[in-house]
Nucleic acid binder design. Sequence first.
DNA 1: AAGTCTCCGAACCGTACGGTACGGTTCCCT
DNA 2: AGGGAACCGTACCGTACGGTTCGGAGACTT
Lengths: 216, 216
Amino acid sequence: MPAAAFDIATSRPDAAPEFSPRQQVVLQHALTLLVDGGEKALTTAGLARTASCSKESLYKWFGDRDGLLAAVVAYQASQVQFPSEAGATADPETFQTHVAAFVEALLGVLFSETSLALNRLSIGQSNTNSNRLGQLLLVRGKHMISARARNMLETGRRHGLLKFDDAEDAYQVLYGLAIRDVHIRLLLGEAASPAEKDLKAQAETAVGQFYQLFGA
Amino acid sequence: MPAAAFDIATSRPDAAPEFSPRQQVVLQHALTLLVDGGEKALTTAGLARTASCSKESLYKWFGDRDGLLAAVVAYQASQVQFPSEAGATADPETFQTHVAAFVEALLGVLFSETSLALNRLSIGQSNTNSNRLGQLLLVRGKHMISARARNMLETGRRHGLLKFDDAEDAYQVLYGLAIRDVHIRLLLGEAASPAEKDLKAQAETAVGQFYQLFGA
DNA sequence: AAGTCTCCGAACCGTACGGTACGGTTCCCT
DNA sequence: AGGGAACCGTACCGTACGGTTCGGAGACTT
């Protein structure tokens, strides 16, 4: 058994894998291949050629192809950044716009071609390999975002701006109102309608409806 | 070029493909393989062995592997049936329970292992083959359901039970409230929580929130 | 300058799978 | 009964790709 250079099973979710600059360049190339070609376009030989590295280095760095895929997911997850929420609760109005900004950022991430490509990859592999990629994407992506969202909503409740029993439930509703079935349609390859591309408007509409349900 | 026995591009979406009984049995075997093994588990040799048919017949019936996958999707789509809506608008209360029943049926379909497997398959292939499978699933599955839902909501509006401008928008909200992010999490391989498995309760909650937003 | 480490490039191997060809069998039709 | 179509089972071929190995070139250390 070759030395597993990147083993998600033993690495803690919040520990940054710290890829070397050279490795990050290679992972970026892998991401590009993946975005415009799907999984089958990402072959070890193809990546080595594109990134001007040797297959030997790939196997040394990432263990095997699965390790490479996992590394790509982890790398991209580490790139996603959300706006901070400094001073977001100054008054009710700015809090609502802050929530809308959060939702808009969420839509921006989920609808980006990179995110879609990685979701497609993870979903395609979800009934093999004991599903490492799906878990990785959930833990490093969705659950992180969910935690931040719950935190934000709890803040709103503490300030008497929102009213709900369970923050997770409330976030789920906000997510549903914002995403609807657009995500799955995009994953299936349908193009977004012009209205759906106006993320700001979509976010504001969703937050408006959310306030109808959970506003204090 | 072999004769394409099943070409989705030239067949109208509402024309039933009419598979022979023998072919349906084979497609059912293919579906089973797909459900508990993912795409890579569905090989022509494996299917021929499982279904006790020859590879030659597979290629004769479905043209090539893509045609087989398309046939599986079309076959499963033809199997999905929704409850009729006879006398659903007798009075406001039964209409709401009818909507809830529709949503529950929708959840039942989307969260079934067969639907999940086919969605995973289509999504995994969505950036190859000019995306035939995704289109097929959308046209034969989602869009059909969406049309029925819009029809139902329009009926409610005509009877003064609901209030909205665009039926599609309203349906999207209903969908979002019902599905939230459960679908994508299931697609990624996460197991549903006990609460999420209570489809009836989930549907009623979603419809309740929907009425808060769109009830007359 | 010699030694060592890293990495590139290329050749190579094994395997899995899509697709084809062919002989033998069953079943229907006349 | 006889002929033909459909079909099963299997052997076979070509290819694509994951993974390994090896030679050699630069870079860094001492």
